[in-house]
């Protein structure tokens, strides 16, 4: 079974993220890393591969530093990596991202399962899995909190606010997983050493037959016209409970007409 996990190299969500002059995410001033939410997809791919004699390919796109995201995934146990590296990619929107990733998945070929996280921790739109599925002509099952692969199909459980659903799709399929699905492993020393010998292919846009004019900031179908920092919230009244805290809270709510 061939599994491709799409991973993203993102600015650390714990740091003060901002924008550059062209209104794209500032990826230089904040340390980057493998998106935390993608670790769950890598872990799930490894579990499925173990049970199904599978091979896990980690796919990313982005600047040279994005290789860090592949490296971490290989250290966790993925078998090989593919990095789409091309200057023209900078500023790509979700539509272009799905074009690049789907073209790369076609070139990797013979893929049974495409796994992703539930969203990136930077853009956070969560639309790329559906777009990938649409471009590849595949079914998608998303926000899985449990995944079972058997007999040519994938079955997932999804917890919504009104109901829990069991959803099945035929393979090949695109599956996104939540952070509830597993506990991603830490790379072991052995894993870190082994990762150094694992193959990573670096492909340009030409290698995956995507025109530079189809991607990047200028080709975006949606464009950011303004970014504005939200004024920091100022601290209001803080009281210390000395037996009267509950009453003071109720008074505040009454004054604000919340009750």
């Amino acid at each position: 079974m061939n599994i491709v996990v799409c991973v993203k190299y993102v600015p650390d969500a714990q740091a003060d993220r901002s924008f550059t002059a062209d209104n794209t995410t500032d990826r230089a001033s904040v340390d980057g890393l493998l998106s935390e939410l993608d670790e769950y997809a890598v872990e799930e791919a490894l579990v499925i591969a173990d049970a199904n004699d599978g091979e896990v390919t980690v796919l990313t796109m982005g600047p040279e530093d994005a290789a860090t995201a592949i490296k971490k995934s290989l250290q966790m146990g993925a078998h090989k990596g593919v990095h789409i590296l091309d200057d023209a990619i900078a500023g790509s929107d979700s539509v272009a991202t799905s074009l690049i990733l789907s073209s790369a998945i076609r070139k990797i070929g013979d893929v049974d399962l495409v796994l992703t996280g539930l969203g990136s921790t930077d853009g956070g739109m969560s639309v790329v899995p559906a777009m990938l599925a649409e471009r590849l002509g595949l079914p998608q099952v998303t926000f899985a909190s449990e995944v079972t692969v058997a007999d040519g199909s994938v079955t997932i459980r999804r917890d919504g606010d009104a109901a829990a659903e069991t959803i099945r799709a035929s393979l090949p399929a695109v599956v996104s997983v939540t952070d509830q699905i597993n506990e991603p492993r830490y790379p072991s020393f052995k894993g870190i050493m082994a990762a150094k010998k694992k193959p990573v292919d670096t492909w340009s846009l030409a290698d995956i037959e995507v025109e530079a004019s189809q991607v990047g900031l200028d080709a975006a179908w949606s464009t950011v016209v303004n970014v504005e920092q939200r004024p920091p919230r100022s601290q209001g009244t803080i009281v210390t409970d000395e037996g009267n805290g509950g009453a003071e809270l109720a008074d505040y709510l009454a004054a604000g007409k919340f009750i």
């Binding site: 009244t237 803080i238 409970d241």
Partner: peptide, 27 residues
């Protein structure tokens, strides 16, 4: 969390919330 609140109570939620609840339910 206190850096961003309009109103904050430093205290044990197990005493503050029931007291506030009781006062709200009375009114």
């Amino acid at each position: 969390i206190f850096e961003m609140v309009d109103f904050g109570v430093v205290g044990d939620l197990f005493t503050v919330l029931p007291a506030a609840t009781a006062k709200i339910n009375e009114s």
